[in-house]
Nucleic acid binder design. Structure first.
Length: 104
DNA sequence: AATATGACCGAAA
DNA sequence: TTTTCGGCCATAT
């Protein structure tokens, strides 16, 4: 049987993650908003922490609202660099520059 | 049942 | 400008 968490919600989140184009990043809150749950950013993080279990998604393109990458996942930086997304010295992604604008 | 924690956010002070 | 604080949902203790 499935997990305790609502799987429809999980796939709703992961399908949005799958639409983030290479060379861009999205924030947890942005994804939450795109699925009509603007206050549920933490849930997005929770789902992404076990995303591998559900399939292959570009989770490395998700950062927090400060542009900070996920703790304990150093490889995320390398994956972003391969897509021409370069963090500053502080290890943060410049959201002004790289944040996915799905309206564009 | 109650409290604390987490890949978080945004408004208010 | 920065700092503080409440909110939201699922899990762990």
């Amino acid at each position: 049987m499935g997990s305790a968490m609502n799987e429809d919600l999980i796939y709703e989140i992961l399908s949005v993650v799958g639409e983030i184009p290479a060379g861009c990043v999205a924030t947890y809150g942005q994804i939450a908003r795109l699925i009509g749950r603007d206050k549920n950013a933490r849930l997005v993080g929770k789902v992404l922490s076990m995303a591998e279990y559900y399939g292959k998604f570009p989770c490395h393109r998700v950062v927090n609202h400060c542009g900070r990458t996920a703790p304990g996942w150093a490889e995320q930086i390398d994956l972003l660099r391969r897509e021409q997304v370069f963090p500053n010295e502080n290890g943060r992604v410049d959201l002004k520059k790289y944040q996915w604008n799905h309206m564009a």
